[in-house]
């Protein structure tokens, strides 16, 4: 049950949110009380509640790191 999907919050009512998972899948009634999230944030949803707000910057950073790293490796190989 570690299945978790990233989705975008499109509406918040009280401690529950409507989340858009893309490809036409929208779910209502997702508990967001355990994270600090606002409309427009990407959250990782697991078993009906948001476990974390996804860190977009970190996701980009990691990709940059691989790219730099892999380029470095390629040079090394040459």
């Amino acid at each position: 049950m570690c299945l978790g999907y990233p989705g975008k919050i499109i509406d918040i009512k009280d401690h529950f949110a409507k989340v858009d998972f893309g490809d036409g899948v929208v779910r209502d009634n997702i508990i967001i009380a355990l994270v600090d999230a606002k409309v427009g944030d990407y959250v990782i949803v697991h078993a009906g509640y948001a476990i974390q707000v996804m860190d977009e910057k970190e996701a980009m950073e990691t990709i940059k790191l691989w790219k730099e790293y892999l380029e470095f490796v390629d040079k090394e190989v040459k």
């Binding site: 049950m1 570690c2 978790g4 697991h46 476990i51």
Partner: peptide, 13 residues
């Protein structure tokens, strides 16, 4: 059922 991932929602409710 499930792990620490699933249980907080129940605790919250």
């Amino acid at each position: 059922v499930g792990f620490d991932t699933t249980a907080p929602a129940t605790a919250y409710m």
